[in-house]
Design a protein around this nucleic acid. Structure first.
Lengths: 204, 204
DNA sequence: CAGTAACTGTACACATTCATACGGCTTTAC
DNA sequence: GTAAAGCCGTATGAATGTGTACAGTTACTG
């Protein structure tokens, strides 16, 4: 009983923390401000998380777990690999350019110790990349692509898909893309990707 | 006489500011810390720059001017466009993944007002992108590439070249690349780029 | 060489954060 | 129903940053 409620409260506080951070930056997201916004006591925050860094570390972990779940679900869908790749593309755009990931990347950029950045990479890219590589293997075996290597294909895919969009989101010069823009961009990316890696080299 | 000296001192202070920021993060780079490190008075810093944000805005501007100069120089070199593209690729990797640009992007990520990010984009991407587009036009006219559009070619080039490398630098999970790594990566990128945009579609 | 302007170093008031502590209230457990 | 635990709100003290002020020194200028 109580455990569930506490989990819910924790999720609530973490959501509020991100919201505060979104509005006032990482500096402005002090434990006190977060506590006030969440209608919690700062003492509770300190007891639960220890300090600000560990609070955000916790958020990074939750976020990574959620993202991985969504990704695995998309990967396991009973569809041809090419369709899965399209879904993955859209999903990654949505996740990586969404408010949550952007806020966490901002926090990591502000954290001089580099711990947040490390956790973000560990829970994010390092977990995701192998899955993409594996998917590329499936695509290759299905004869959809013929890349120099699965790793190279995964790298190209991510670069063409995300490129510098995430950094532009992080420094605040790019608004969050709409669903329509995401679909459009995923489509364009896939066309380029297949033109780069495809077995069919007719181009255009 | 004095004007020169002052310019030199300003450049010195700005360099120190970046150095402090590199070591202690944007938060840790207080006006006081910068003043101490630069053996200057904080009063001078406040008189010259007004506040921390404008100090960093000034640094962004200087950096952008320097980068643009280097870029223009490379673009005007008496070489075939394909060679110029390679030089530009290496130059951009060096500039964008170097300590200075990374520190400034970190600062922009920490700046909740978004002004630093705006200035960074204005002095950086918005100035550079049109130049790349123009270069793509030259490459197209020289028959080296046959892209759907010059803009698309420029976008692909940048995405394949920079990708998520800059963000990974900013969150501290990627070390600064060596000269050798830069050359290697530029080469790989160009191969992919030509395979994507080239008139010659034999692939591999 | 004298006068003036600017810079350094230090000090200051004010605000804010961090981390801890405590009284009062609600909720859980027995 | 009563005891205990946990959380809220507020208070607290140490530390730090911001922006301003001022005395002493250095370095230009005429």
């Amino acid at each position: 009983m109580r455990a569930e409620k506490k989990d819910k409260r924790r999720a609530e506080i973490e959501a509020v923390a991100l919201e505060v951070m979104r509005e006032r930056g990482y500096e402005g997201a002090s434990m006190l401000n977060i506590a006030k916004a969440a209608k919690a006591s700062n003492e509770t925050l300190y007891r639960w998380y220890g300090d600000k860094q560990r609070l955000f570390l916790e958020i990074v972990k939750s976020n990574a777990a959620e993202a991985e779940e969504a990704l695995d679900k998309a990967l396991k869908a009973p569809l041809p690999p090419a369709d899965i790749l399209e879904q993955i593309g859209k999903l990654m755009l949505r996740l990586l350019l969404g408010e949550r990931a952007v806020a966490l990347n901002r926090a990591a950029a502000c954290d001089a110790s580099g711990q947040l950045g490390g956790a973000l990479a560990k829970g994010g890219r390092e977990r995701v990349f192998p899955k993409i590589v594996k998917l590329m293997g499936a695509l290759r075996e299905a004869g959809v692509i013929a890349p120099p290597s699965d790793e190279q294909a995964a790298t190209w895919f991510i670069q063409l898909l995300i490129g510098d969009l995430q950094l532009r989101r992080v420094i605040g010069t790019l608004p969050e893309p709409t669903r329509g823009q995401i679909n459009q961009h995923a489509k364009t990316t896939l066309a380029a990707f297949y033109s780069l890696c495809g077995t069919d080299q007719t181009g255009v």
